[in-house]
């Protein structure tokens, strides 16, 4: 009987769990792509996620190994400076200072790229999707004006579970 109880316990504990903030962020970055239509999509062989100054160690490689997004294999590209940016579907921007963020947003404006960051105020500053945590739950904030500028059509399903904001004037 004890074995049965232990079996149940370990089966249960192997299911959902507390996850690190980084892991949840990395997963959601790719997960939201399902709800986004790239209106001027470049004909890339892969679905490309570019990570600026990777703060996630091996998480992107581990999670997206052998994964497909929009029926394409996922390619993770790491860059140290925005000038190194090549064709990509998603650009993750780490918590950078305001001047650099402004520069990045300027260089990616009107591109068909989903910009994602956890920088405070990212969405209102012109980014498309901001990630943040409240009471240990990951939240998504989307700037619909910015999404339009980036020619991204976001499905209502995603907008329903996200906080929708506009540019700060």
């Amino acid at each position: 009987m004890l074995k049965v109880v232990l079996s149940i316990f370990f089966l249960l504990t192997s299911l959902y769990a507390y996850e690190s903030e980084d892991k949840l962020k990395v997963i959601i970055i790719g997960k939201v792509a399902k709800y986004i239509t790239y209106e001027n999509a470049q004909n890339l062989d892969n679905f490309v996620i570019t990570v600026l100054r990777n703060p996630f160690e091996n998480l992107f490689d581990d999670i997206y190994k052998n994964k497909r997004i929009k029926s394409k294999p996922v390619k993770i590209s790491y860059i140290d400076h925005i000038n190194e940016l090549e064709s990509t579907n998603i650009l993750y921007i780490p918590n950078v200072n305001a001047r650099e963020l402004s520069d990045i947003l300027y260089k990616t404006q009107n591109s068909n790229i989903l910009t994602v960051s956890d920088t405070r105020g990212f969405a209102q500053r012109g980014g498309v999707m901001q990630l943040y945590f409240i009471s240990q739950k990951l939240k998504i904030k989307i700037n619909i004006q910015s999404a339009k500028r980036h020619s991204l059509k976001i499905q209502p399903t995603l907008l329903r579970i996200a906080d929708v904001v506009k540019d700060e004037k």
Binding site: Y18, E19, I28, K34, K137, K139, L158
Partner: peptide
């Protein structure tokens, strides 16, 4: 987790 529904992922507690 990547195979889970997005709402389920968003309901997972992050580390404290």
């Amino acid at each position: 987790l990547f195979d889970e529904d997005i709402e389920d992922i968003l309901s997972i507690k992050s580390e404290l």
